[in-house]
Write a protein that binds this DNA or RNA. Sequence first.
DNA 1: GTCTATAATACGATAGAC
DNA 2: GTCTATCGTATTATAGAC
Lengths: 194, 194
Amino acid sequence: MLDRRTEILMAATRVIARRGVRGLRVGELATEAAVSTALIYYHFTDRAGLLRETLAFISDRADRYTAERDPGAHPGGPRAELEQVLMLELQDTADVRENSTAWGELRATAVFEPGLREDLAKVTHTWVYEIADLLARARPDGTAPAHAAAAERLTALVEGLSTRWLSGSLPLDHARQLVRGAIDTELGGSGAVG
Amino acid sequence: MLDRRTEILMAATRVIARRGVRGLRVGELATEAAVSTALIYYHFTDRAGLLRETLAFISDRADRYTAERDPGAHPGGPRAELEQVLMLELQDTADVRENSTAWGELRATAVFEPGLREDLAKVTHTWVYEIADLLARARPDGTAPAHAAAAERLTALVEGLSTRWLSGSLPLDHARQLVRGAIDTELGGSGAVG
DNA sequence: GTCTATAATACGATAGAC
DNA sequence: GTCTATCGTATTATAGAC
């Protein structure tokens, strides 16, 4: 059985997925969690603190996506592992939708709130580094700077596509296909225009 | 001489660039535009209407970036033109910063407000189509679907990089370098990992 | 068309009972 | 720990003078 505090954090994640970080109202969260607003202020100092803890909660959950994998031991080899890791952000399950939405919100909010930037940079760096590592294993002949640049491009692409998906301008299947094409292209495969 | 209405729209663009769509307060806009809040409600029905018109205003201005160019008559050929058009979103001038910030906000807001999605899809489609056309001119040997996919990847990449730039996680020069690398890679040049 | 003044309400946050 | 009730303020929106 989960404690109330965790229930509130999960409810906050759902509300953020529905209304955005900046659209979260403490009153609406109370309704979603089926508690009073006073209880929220009992468990969290204020709205800002609640938001901080919720974003940490979401990050942890996202970390677990990847942390639970067994790195390097992927059956399909590094190429398949690379594709799988990049596709983690592009799946239509409640969990991933919630996480991707919150993540996009975090990025969008950081444009106007410098206080969020540090957390953001840290998590982004971890992700980029992981992708660069997989690229290095998929193409051991490439240079480290080339792998780093390709990893930055692939992750930024996934973020861009994720926003388009969530904002309804791009079907999920199409977004996934574009990522596959980008992997092909970056690995020097047959994906390029010519 | 501009009329008050247009002055308010320009002021709204500045406020959105500073605070975000959801951070825009009618009172702050009034101060920025040096008018009363009542005047804003005289010229626009309500906050939502003001926002709609401001976002249309921003879209029009962004269209003009590219519409005013002389398509096909670029001195450096289609490859240079392609690079230039993609780089339009990644420049540290007040205008571009305002537009890119507002554009990112429009996308981020559309995730939670379906009413904005139609406008968004239209402008995105125009942009993607323009890039696909330039790719076709740069590589006439490629197929139309390949050009379309590459255009979607390049524009989504620019959006992702733009958000990273504006949220302070990526220096502008680096973002621009990554776009150049992506163009090389998509055109089958020497940019790939291997 | 533009202002000052103010109504109406939404929202974050707290007091105090249980 | 959890609730009901409420306060204070920020914000949207309007009334009415000029």
